[in-house]
């Protein structure tokens, strides 16, 4: 009879350990996505902080870094929304190329603002087997405001063999979502003409690169 409580405790402890193992599984699976973000974004920030590079060298290297980190084709297709279904393969290819040019110019200008800051991964969520949201904080060593650090989340997909970033959010704003809202509205205003959007994106990319 004395052993009964001990057995019950042992049984409960085993049950708890097993539950913990099941609960912990998604977190463990999320680790590669977290590592990917921590390592790569750190590399990108280091690139921006490298004072030995000329601005042209920094721009070229950052472009290579960005294209290696993200899946631009996938992002481009996403931003077209419902217009992707009706676009011809030629138009789609031209749009993907124009989008890449635009995105690299604009993202580079965004990231340059964070030079001198560091990134800390704070956790992640697993949306599905190959879809992760990695939460990070951008730490600005010169920030004396006393306010919490800026929260930046990365959407990482791993279904193509290697992890790639497909979207990121700053303080709750997802950039690709915002781009999709803009592009589809623009196309709605221009009778769905993708060529007009391509021309507009090319102009914007030129403007950004000119500065």
């Amino acid at each position: 009879m004395r052993f009964q409580p001990i057995l019950r405790r042992t049984f409960l402890a085993t049950l708890l350990s097993l539950s913990a193992a099941f609960v912990a599984r998604p977190a463990l699976a999320a680790s590669p996505a977290e590592d990917f973000v921590q390592t790569n974004i750190h590399k990108g920030l280091e690139l921006l902080n490298n004072k030995q590079l000329s601005s042209d060298q920094r721009r070229t290297q950052f472009e290579g870094f960005l294209l290696g980190l993200t899946d631009m084709k996938r992002i481009a297709d996403f931003t077209l929304g419902q217009y992707r279904r009706t676009a011809s393969p030629q138009d789609l290819a031209a749009f993907e190329s124009a989008f890449q040019n635009y995105a690299v110019a604009v993202y580079q200008s965004y990231f340059a603002k964070y030079a001198g800051q560091s990134l800390k991964v704070t956790g992640s969520q697993q949306r599905s087997g190959d879809d992760f949201i990695v939460a990070t904080q951008l730490i600005d060593p010169n920030d004396k405001s006393g306010q919490p650090p800026l929260e930046v989340d990365f959407r990482v997909r791993t279904d193509s063999g290697k992890p790639v970033v497909v979207d990121f959010s700053v303080a709750g704003i997802w950039l690709a979502l915002e781009e999709r809202d803009q592009f589809t509205a623009f196309l709605g205003q221009n009778n769905g003409n993708i060529h007009t959007l391509i021309a507009h994106l090319s102009d914007l990319a030129k403007q950004f690169r000119g500065n």
Binding site: G172, E179, Q182, A185
Partner: peptide
């Protein structure tokens, strides 16, 4: 400067920011 459609950009930003504010900054 960076908007393809400034109106649509504001609309998207406003909605996303409001959703974030309503969540009180908790994870999406």
């Amino acid at each position: 400067r960076s908007s393809v459609d400034y109106y649509a950009s504001l609309r998207s930003l406003y909605r996303q920011l409001r959703e974030n504010a309503i969540r009180n900054g908790r994870a999406v």
